[in-house]
Design a protein around this nucleic acid. Sequence first.
DNA 1: CCAGACGTTGTT
DNA 2: GTCTGG
DNA 3: CCAGACGTTGTT
DNA 4: GTCTGG
Length: 230
Amino acid sequence: MRPVPALKRKVCGRFTLAARPQDLQQEFPDFWFPSDLPPRYNIAPSQQTLVLPGDGAFQARSMRWGLVPAWARDPAIGNRMINARSETVLERPAFRSAFRKRRCLVCADGFYEWQGSPPRRRPFHITLPGGVPFAMAGIWEEWPSPEAENLSTFALLTTRANPDLRAIHDRMPVILGPEARPVWLDPTRPPDALLDLLVPFPGRLELRAVSRFVNRPGNEGPECLAAAES
DNA sequence: CCAGACGTTGTT
DNA sequence: GTCTGG
DNA sequence: CCAGACGTTGTT
DNA sequence: GTCTGG
């Protein structure tokens, strides 16, 4: 008998990065950050956001969320390549090469998950205690655009939800603590050592129901974190 | 050998 | 790029 | 992830 | 319903 598929709901598709550059500098002291970083409360797929690639430059870069494989004909394919399952990332043709050679950290200070079924689906904002910035595990690609400069894109690694999150969701982005980050970014690390890092977050998470204002991808600003209407 | 395809998420 | 199908 | 669009003809 | 765009 085939294994019964686990309960599945939708996975990380929005997040926040409202932290100031000095807060990021403190959390990621090895990296250089731009000083003019705008606070973001509604980062959606296809948008640019701050990524720390393991390319040895230790320079924060802006990349587009939604991985476009190097061989893609149409970069629109990236709009659906926003998450890569940890369980299968090693085999998937679209991700395998990026997983082996181009890993990164994706800076965030919270992410959104939606709970329930339409039309009552409600967004939650999930943070670490105190709202400190954290690093999500990512992989990235460079797509040679015929007209413009290369397009840099990334996908987030996902794993099972941890106990705090399980009430609303069964998947979550992989969050890497300070010890795991250099391992993930080390280009010489073998796949087995990397896969060991892709586990549910072992610490506590804080969940807060927020307004549906965040639903609309074009909405931006601290209103995205307003308490949920009753 | 060449030609042609190549993907993910989720489906509560 | 890399794999499959013919 | 959610919101919003969703068409055709013909075109060196 | 399904796909694209943000």
